[in-house]
Computed example of a mutant assay.
Amino acid sequence: MSNKWGVAQNREKFTPGSENVFADLGFEEPAQMKLKALTAGQINSIIEDLHLSQNQAAELLSVSPETLTNLKTGKLFEFSLDALLGFMIKLGLDVEIIFTPTSDDQRPSYFVTVENKKTKVAT
Protein backbone atom coordinates (compact mmCIF):
# COMPACT_ATOMS: atom_id res chain seq x y z
CA MET A 1 0.00 0.00 0.00
CA SER A 2 1.25 3.51 -0.82
CA ASN A 3 0.66 6.77 1.00
CA LYS A 4 -0.68 9.90 -0.73
CA TRP A 5 2.82 10.67 -2.10
CA GLY A 6 3.16 7.26 -3.72
CA VAL A 7 5.67 5.96 -1.17
CA ALA A 8 5.15 2.36 -0.15
CA GLN A 9 4.24 1.99 3.52
CA ASN A 10 5.36 -0.91 5.60
CA ARG A 11 2.36 -2.37 7.41
CA GLU A 12 4.25 -5.02 9.38
CA LYS A 13 3.33 -5.36 13.01
CA PHE A 14 6.04 -4.82 15.57
CA THR A 15 6.36 -6.36 18.99
CA PRO A 16 7.41 -3.86 21.63
CA GLY A 17 10.76 -4.68 23.19
CA SER A 18 11.65 -4.88 26.82
CA GLU A 19 14.01 -2.53 28.63
CA ASN A 20 16.90 -4.78 27.57
CA VAL A 21 17.59 -5.36 23.89
CA PHE A 22 20.05 -8.13 24.78
CA ALA A 23 17.24 -10.08 26.47
CA ASP A 24 14.99 -9.44 23.48
CA LEU A 25 17.66 -10.89 21.16
CA GLY A 26 18.16 -13.98 23.34
CA PHE A 27 21.68 -13.33 24.59
CA GLU A 28 22.96 -15.28 27.57
CA GLU A 29 23.33 -13.03 30.61
CA PRO A 30 21.49 -10.06 29.06
CA ALA A 31 21.74 -7.94 32.22
CA GLN A 32 25.51 -8.22 32.20
CA MET A 33 25.60 -7.42 28.47
CA LYS A 34 23.52 -4.28 29.00
CA LEU A 35 25.68 -3.22 31.93
CA LYS A 36 28.83 -3.72 29.87
CA ALA A 37 27.33 -1.78 26.95
CA LEU A 38 26.36 1.15 29.18
CA THR A 39 29.82 1.17 30.77
CA ALA A 40 31.61 0.94 27.41
CA GLY A 41 29.48 3.76 26.03
CA GLN A 42 30.44 5.93 28.97
CA ILE A 43 34.13 5.08 28.50
CA ASN A 44 33.92 6.00 24.82
CA SER A 45 32.20 9.30 25.68
CA ILE A 46 34.90 10.18 28.19
CA ILE A 47 37.68 9.39 25.71
CA GLU A 48 35.95 11.64 23.18
CA ASP A 49 35.41 14.43 25.75
CA LEU A 50 39.11 14.30 26.68
CA HIS A 51 40.03 14.57 22.98
CA LEU A 52 42.36 11.58 23.29
CA SER A 53 43.77 9.99 20.17
CA GLN A 54 43.40 6.24 19.73
CA ASN A 55 47.02 5.72 20.81
CA GLN A 56 46.76 8.08 23.78
CA ALA A 57 43.60 6.38 25.03
CA ALA A 58 45.06 2.90 24.51
CA GLU A 59 48.18 3.88 26.45
CA LEU A 60 46.14 5.41 29.28
CA LEU A 61 44.00 2.27 29.54
CA SER A 62 47.02 -0.05 29.15
CA VAL A 63 45.55 -1.84 26.12
CA SER A 64 46.54 -2.13 22.47
CA PRO A 65 44.96 0.20 19.91
CA GLU A 66 43.26 -2.88 18.41
CA THR A 67 41.68 -3.71 21.76
CA LEU A 68 40.49 -0.12 22.09
CA THR A 69 38.92 -0.39 18.63
CA ASN A 70 36.93 -3.39 19.86
CA LEU A 71 35.75 -1.34 22.82
CA LYS A 72 34.75 1.55 20.57
CA THR A 73 32.86 -0.67 18.14
CA GLY A 74 30.93 -2.57 20.81
CA LYS A 75 32.78 -5.89 20.52
CA LEU A 76 32.59 -6.39 24.26
CA PHE A 77 32.85 -10.17 24.64
CA GLU A 78 36.58 -9.93 25.43
CA PHE A 79 36.02 -7.39 28.23
CA SER A 80 35.03 -8.35 31.75
CA LEU A 81 32.92 -5.94 33.73
CA ASP A 82 35.84 -5.65 36.14
CA ALA A 83 38.14 -4.54 33.29
CA LEU A 84 35.62 -1.94 32.10
CA LEU A 85 35.24 -0.53 35.61
CA GLY A 86 39.05 -0.42 35.84
CA PHE A 87 39.08 1.68 32.65
CA MET A 88 36.66 4.09 34.29
CA ILE A 89 39.06 4.53 37.20
CA LYS A 90 42.02 5.02 34.82
CA LEU A 91 39.98 7.76 33.13
CA GLY A 92 39.60 9.55 36.48
CA LEU A 93 36.09 8.55 37.48
CA ASP A 94 34.91 7.14 40.76
CA VAL A 95 32.95 3.91 40.51
CA GLU A 96 30.34 3.64 43.23
CA ILE A 97 28.24 0.56 43.95
CA ILE A 98 25.25 1.13 46.21
CA PHE A 99 22.87 -1.45 47.66
CA THR A 100 19.43 -0.32 48.80
CA PRO A 101 16.39 -2.25 49.99
CA THR A 102 13.41 -2.45 47.68
CA SER A 103 9.91 -1.61 48.74
CA ASP A 104 7.46 -4.46 49.19
CA ASP A 105 5.68 -3.69 45.91
CA GLN A 106 8.80 -3.74 43.73
CA ARG A 107 10.97 -6.51 42.35
CA PRO A 108 14.68 -6.13 43.08
CA SER A 109 16.49 -4.43 40.19
CA TYR A 110 19.80 -2.88 39.41
CA PHE A 111 20.53 0.43 37.82
CA VAL A 112 23.39 2.48 36.44
CA THR A 113 23.41 6.19 37.23
CA VAL A 114 25.56 8.58 35.21
CA GLU A 115 25.35 12.29 35.87
CA ASN A 116 22.04 11.88 37.72
CA LYS A 117 20.46 9.85 34.87
CA LYS A 118 19.34 6.48 36.22
CA THR A 119 19.04 3.56 33.76
CA LYS A 120 17.47 0.25 34.72
CA VAL A 121 19.72 -2.65 33.78
CA ALA A 122 17.73 -5.63 35.01
CA THR A 123 14.89 -6.77 37.21
Score class of each variant (00 low, 15 high):
residue 52 L to V: 02
residue 108 P to Y: 13
residue 89 I to P: 04
residue 100 T to K: 11
residue 97 I to M: 13
residue 39 T to I: 11
residue 85 L to Y: 14
residue 16 P to K: 08
residue 112 V to D: 01
residue 112 V to C: 08
residue 78 E to L: 08
residue 44 N to I: 04
residue 89 I to G: 03
residue 77 F to C: 02
residue 99 F to P: 00
residue 46 I to Y: 02
residue 57 A to L: 05
residue 101 P to Q: 09
residue 81 L to E: 15
residue 78 E to D: 05
residue 68 L to D: 05
residue 109 S to T: 08
residue 110 Y to F: 15
residue 27 F to G: 01
residue 46 I to G: 00
residue 107 R to H: 08
residue 83 A to C: 03
residue 4 K to E: 13
residue 105 D to T: 11
residue 6 G to P: 04
residue 58 A to G: 10
residue 56 Q to F: 01
residue 106 Q to D: 13
residue 65 P to C: 06
residue 33 M to D: 08
residue 45 S to C: 01
residue 39 T to D: 01
residue 24 D to S: 07
residue 6 G to K: 06
residue 53 S to T: 15
residue 65 P to L: 07
residue 32 Q to L: 15
residue 9 Q to L: 15
residue 116 N to F: 05
residue 17 G to F: 03
residue 28 E to Q: 11
residue 55 N to G: 07
residue 33 M to Q: 14
residue 102 T to Q: 12
residue 103 S to M: 11
residue 108 P to R: 01
residue 92 G to M: 06
residue 63 V to T: 04
residue 36 K to F: 05
residue 9 Q to G: 00
residue 67 T to G: 02
residue 93 L to E: 14
residue 115 E to Q: 12
residue 96 E to L: 13
residue 62 S to P: 00
residue 19 E to H: 14
residue 10 N to F: 07
residue 28 E to S: 12
residue 98 I to A: 07
residue 72 K to Q: 15
residue 56 Q to P: 01
residue 73 T to Q: 10
residue 21 V to E: 12
residue 13 K to Q: 12
residue 110 Y to I: 00
residue 10 N to T: 05
residue 66 E to Q: 15
residue 110 Y to R: 08
residue 119 T to N: 09
residue 37 A to G: 05
residue 73 T to S: 13
residue 86 G to H: 00
residue 71 L to P: 07
residue 123 T to P: 15
residue 39 T to Q: 00
residue 123 T to W: 01
residue 112 V to R: 11
